[in-house]
Simulated assay, not measured.
Amino acid sequence: MTKTLSLTGMRSFVAVCETGGVRAAADQIGRTPSAVSMTLKQLEDDIGAPLFESERKGALSPVGRIVLDEARAMIAHYDRACLAMTSYAADRQGRCDVASVPSVAVTLLPRAVAQLRSEGGNFDIHVRDSDSSAIVDAVENGVVEVGLCVLAGKRPQLTFEPLFHEPLDFVCPVDHPLAKSKHPLKWSQLTRESFIQNGAAEALGIAEVEALAAGSKLTATNVSSNLAMVEAGLGVTILPRLCRWKCSNDIRFVPLADPRSSRTVGWIAKEGRSLQPASLRFIECIREQTQAGEREFGYATA
């Protein structure tokens, strides 16, 4: 029979890990240090293994590292479920937690939220932007309900619905020799460029991009950093076409000739999970805004 683990114990454990000690954790969660220590001891007894390497609680044991990840996911799920139930009881329509890749977060997502607001729904909407791998983790761990991202490979625990297919373009300063090219660029034209590596380009899995990245001395992890580096003349890069709508006039996006230089963006949620009304309506709005923006943004709807 599966043991029932205390939610209070999980909260105490996470607090100790995040604050670095029992006393600080006790202050954070409003309990006494002795009560926190007793709760941790009971949690270790229930799990059947120590969670820390020593009594000083300075380093997690291998079991403790696993428990920390699971405890955070469990607490996030519990808190969101409580909010959903109390929202319904208070005659509200719930909350939508969504994570999005940056290019969608600054283009389609605000339009979807505006549409949702204009319809009069009394929703709490919480938005965060991140890269696709972090978004997948957030959905799987119950931190957010809906993700707008690229899903690499099959994830049976997730539902994925494609929204659009988006090209990735060569990005360079406006005065770069290739900025005025009248034709899509071939990989052979880029071999001598100082390439700024990023996750979106790497995720393409194309040998020619990997060759460019192999010689790269500069990596930027988000869209804003990539664009700033290009604008400063530190190199060129490859980014999703949607990113060009928020860049300066000193940067040019030039199409690539290789049809493989594209990605499919869609929404994800946990397979088999009943989404809150706010999340369901948000998905409808993002579908509609994706359709409406096809000609403007230059992608192909799925």
Rank of each mutant, 00 (worst) to 15 (best):
G121L: 11
A207K: 07
R287D: 14
A257P: 02
N222S: 11
G94C: 01
D69E: 13
D69M: 09
G20R: 09
R117L: 06
P240V: 08
H176P: 11
R263Q: 15
V101P: 01
S132N: 06
C96V: 09
D129M: 12
T237L: 00
L275S: 06
A90F: 04
C96T: 08
V98M: 02
A300N: 06
A99V: 03
R128W: 07
A269K: 07
H165T: 15
F13V: 03
G215S: 08
Q28S: 15
A99I: 05
N122P: 07
V106S: 12
V236H: 02
R72G: 10
V36P: 03
F160G: 00
S61A: 12
D175M: 01
A84L: 10
C82K: 09
A214R: 15
F52I: 05
G30A: 04
Q291I: 13
E161I: 04
G233Y: 07
A89G: 01
Q276P: 07
C96N: 05
R295N: 07
I66P: 02
G298E: 08
M74A: 13
S188D: 15
S216R: 05
A179E: 12
N198W: 01
K217L: 14
G21F: 05
D131F: 14
D124Q: 13
D169T: 05
P177C: 04
V63D: 14
T4N: 10
C82S: 13
V139T: 02
P277A: 04
H183P: 03
T86R: 13
T290V: 10
A257C: 03
P50Y: 00
G147M: 05
A84C: 06
V223L: 08
M74F: 14
V150K: 00
R95P: 00
R111P: 06
S279N: 10
